[in-house]
Design a protein around this nucleic acid. Structure first.
Lengths: 237, 237
DNA sequence: CGGAACCTTGAAAAATGTCAAATCCGGTGG
DNA sequence: CCACCGGATTTGACATTTTTCAAGGTTCCG
């Protein structure tokens, strides 16, 4: 399959709203996020991505980008012509199936975000986001013990949860005071997984952790699937 | 293709959260919606569906339902075994492609909802929802002039927009006072499409109205694709 | 050392939610 | 046909959450 790999610095755009693309990306290393800008200038972050995620099947099929994708940290991205991806999907049902599955799982995550933002209060939303990121980083092998490097500013966390920077800050302080997390710069340490996932109304099942995930290996990326840490998915039903 | 059609009454469940299904549905007539219940008992409506929509590709592939689907009005639904749908998708690329497209468009709609709920105020959210429903009913041939029957209670509209019933009520009154809509029971008349879509920060492009949609005809449903009414999609870019 | 981006704080304002009661409205049974 | 019932809508007063604004404080990096 034809493809090329590009190293991108922090904050660089993989794709901008309204771009017309003819290729499809796979995140090999680093983190990325999708976002949309609304009429009054506000930004909403739509999802966060870890190595192994396919980043724009949408655009390979739909043409015009309806949102932007940006690097959260520096990292590598593999670009594959949309046509090649489509051909591959239809020539090899196993691959087509895997891609479709990834699309469906992503839909499941979007739905959970709608529920998170629409029907939970600030504390619950933030705790939920921290849990989701923990599980995804874990499955991408990016957790060290119960601590991870969260390379998002509080403003970005606000944009992901539908809150303001100031309120995110206060919410973090509250979660800290309650003993659920400890912060050291951008690093988050989860002090009490059960309490945090309860506070965040978090059940990992919407991430469909049992389904295969990660296309990076195909491209010689560094992605390695690590075993899920004890207790991390315990609350999944 | 093996399938059977079932008539469902208002509010009946097509699928409940945690159900394990082996079939896939297509909405032939009537309206339906997806929803999720969060920890404190709140409900979030995730999407609204019109005749022609496929209702649970997710579950055909992922197994366990991560949300519920319920009829908003009485209507007919075609059930197709998941296996048959999958076989069909891989045997006939054109069909597989169409289904995948539908999945991707649905993803685009979910993303817009995240932005709507996360970053817009009450008035904008409600106006946006009214616009989206107008466009979708229009393309399903369910609009009469600039008026449509919206079979959702104000509580359901609140659950779809992340607001309370009371606030939805007041927001409706405001939209009415401003001359954007008129209400008669559950019917909504759009007095000024341009003003309403501006108020709702609505651009139809995320619905990808140019892409083929609607599987109902395959099953002998009553779905007919009507031409888009003048001006209705004018704000699409 | 200085600047820029990010984080933190406080006080006040605004948006939205809560609660409880009143009203409307369509359907049902007498 | 009428009275009544239950769900839905509307209203008012009030509480709470979240935002806004503005100012310091911190950290990182050149």
């Amino acid at each position: 399959m034809p493809f090329f790999i590009k190293s991108l610095i922090q904050n660089s755009y993989i794709l901008r709203e309204l771009d017309i693309t003819k290729s499809c990306c796979i995140l090999l290393s680093g983190l990325a996020f999708r976002s949309k800008v609304v009429g009054d200038g506000g930004r909403q972050i739509l999802s966060v991505h870890v190595p192994g995620d396919m980043l724009d099947l949408q655009h390979a099929f739909l043409g015009v980008a309806d949102h932007s994708i940006q690097m959260l940290t520096a990292g590598d991205v593999a670009y594959v012509p949309a046509k090649a991806v489509q051909d591959l999907a239809f020539a090899y049902p196993a691959i087509g199936r895997a891609m479709w599955l990834e699309t469906l799982i992503e839909g499941s995550i979007f739905r959970e975000w709608i529920a998170n933002i629409g029907r939970r209060d600030a504390r619950t939303r933030v705790a939920h986001l921290l849990c989701e990121i923990a599980v995804r980083l874990q499955s991408a092998g990016l957790m060290t013990g119960n601590r991870y490097e969260l390379p998002m500013t509080q403003e970005q966390i606000g944009d992901a949860t539908g809150l303001t920077t100031v309120h995110v800050n206060r919410t973090f302080q509250a979660l800290h005071k309650e003993g659920l997390i400890t912060r050291d710069k951008r690093a988050i340490e989860i002090r009490d997984w059960n309490a945090l996932s309860a506070a965040g109304d978090f059940r990992a099942s919407y991430l469909h952790p049992d389904n295969p995930n990660g296309f990076a290996p195909v491209f010689g990326g560094t992605f390695v699937e690590l075993p899920i840490k004890d207790g991390m998915l315990a609350s999944a039903t």
